[in-house]
Simulated scan of single mutants.
Amino acid sequence: MIYRYLTVAALARFADEGARVALVLVALDATGSALFGGVLAGAFMVPHVLAGPAVGALADRARRRAPVYALLIGGNGVAIALCGLLAGVAPHAVVLVIAVLGGCCAPLGTGGLSSLIKELFRPERRDRVYGLDVMTYNLAGICGPAVVAGVAQLAGARLATVALGAGAVTAGLLVLSLPLRRREFTGGTALTAGFGAIWRIRPLRAVTVATGLGAGAYGAFPLVTTLLAIQYHAGYAAGALLSAAAIGGLTGSLLYARHPVGARRPERTVMICLLASALPLAAVPFVPGVLPALLLFAAAGFFVGPQSAALFASRDRHAPPAVHTQVFTLGAGLKVTASALGAALAGYAAGAGPDGLLLAAAGVYAAAGALGGALLLRD
């Protein structure tokens, strides 16, 4: 069963990560317009945030969730493939609408799937499964864009989008094989109920605020690594530093899956990992050359794996059953929003240079861990 679940998660998340690159490439290839490529990718990404509460509430209310997941995850795949096939053929507005609809389906393939772990696995296995679940996010983030770029180079961007779409449709069909029981309650909860649960329940509030701030710092990484590459006079460093952080996160999630440290109070693990991530980042401005920076980025990324697994475990334990999925999809959407905001703020503060931005990011991580810890201690 664990392999079935991980296959579903990996395929769905690979399609989601790869689509961010594939849609830009297919727009450039079919229309020659970088502007349309950016708008198309944005049309796919923005609904991840806006639709999260709605699709989470839909899953929470459904008596039979497997068909809902299959329809939405598969629908996301169909939308990705259609965008690739229709770009440059159909009017731009039609392609953008399809991208928006696909993006609305996407949250059930990310946070929504993670919310199913509570039902699919026994309590003593969940911490390990959450670590492996985070691994699928890391693998998708590392491999998705790279594989898409390779396929687009060899066979064209349209084929890349079709391949991604087929993977997501396969994930949707495989969901039907997961043993999700029929539920007697239908929820009837409002779309704001997830917000209410997060605000009312102290551990949920603490981990949501803390990881949201941490995601804001992480959103600055692409700009920071680009500026560092310029500073080091090494163009490859921009991608290499991001890859080092992702590989560190993959290593951390695998280790946590084997040894889930702090599993009794996962929200504490979240705060400790945020604080620990700050230290290597703060050291980067004080070391010479690319190699030490790569090692420090990997060290910072290492703590992201356990942090994410512990975050899921905390949601698992504290989210009320009536809004369980909504808490997961809403939390994921808030992190995406915070990451985008962090990227924008980093752009405005680019004059501070890579060292200043890195110290600021490290400060945000440390503040996030400290604030989250303070929120946990409040009565």
Rank of each mutant, 00 (worst) to 15 (best):
A43N: 02
D29P: 08
W199Y: 11
L358W: 09
V148I: 07
L376H: 13
H92N: 14
R65W: 00
G363E: 02
F286Y: 14
E17K: 05
L330I: 00
Q307A: 15
T170H: 03
A298K: 11
S339I: 06
V287G: 02
V100F: 03
Y365E: 14
L250C: 11
V151H: 06
L242G: 14
G372K: 01
A332N: 08
G248I: 10
G111C: 08
P123H: 11
I98K: 11
L281Y: 05
G187Y: 01
G187Q: 01
P53Y: 01
A350N: 04
R20W: 03
L279N: 10
A368C: 02
L25T: 11
A206L: 05
V287N: 02
A340H: 10
C143H: 02
L341T: 11
R4E: 12
M1A: 13
V55A: 00
T226G: 15
F14T: 00
A278W: 08
F221C: 03
A361V: 12
A350P: 06
L85H: 07
Y365K: 07
L72H: 03
Y348F: 14
R268F: 11
L58W: 00
L116P: 02
A238G: 15
M271Q: 13
A190N: 12
A70K: 05
I117R: 04
P285L: 03
L113A: 07
V336H: 14
G187H: 03
L250M: 13
I247G: 11
L139Y: 09
V169A: 07
G141T: 13
V327C: 00
V290W: 09
L71Y: 06
L113D: 08
V24Q: 13
I198W: 01
A106T: 14
R317N: 07
I272Y: 15
A322N: 02
T226M: 12
L255D: 11
G194Y: 08
V97W: 02
A90E: 06
F36Y: 14
A238N: 10
V24C: 09
F185W: 11
V304W: 13
A79R: 04
T31A: 06
G216F: 12
A70Q: 02
G301N: 03
I98R: 08
N76G: 12
T189W: 00
N76E: 15
V207P: 04
G141D: 14
R378N: 10
L86H: 07
P320C: 01
I201N: 10
A217Y: 05
I230W: 11
A66H: 00
G372W: 03
R181A: 15
F44T: 04
P123K: 10
H324Q: 07
A310R: 07
L334Y: 01
R13A: 05
P53H: 01
L101G: 09
V364R: 07
G103V: 09
G373K: 06
T325H: 03
P285Q: 04
T208R: 05
G42C: 06
V68S: 00
H233P: 09
A171I: 09
R317L: 10
V24G: 13
S277C: 13
R202F: 06
G144Q: 02
G262K: 06
T325V: 01
E267C: 08
A299K: 07
V24M: 09
L345S: 05
A349S: 08
A19S: 08
G74K: 03
I230P: 05
L191A: 04
A166C: 10
H233L: 15
Q231E: 15
G373W: 11
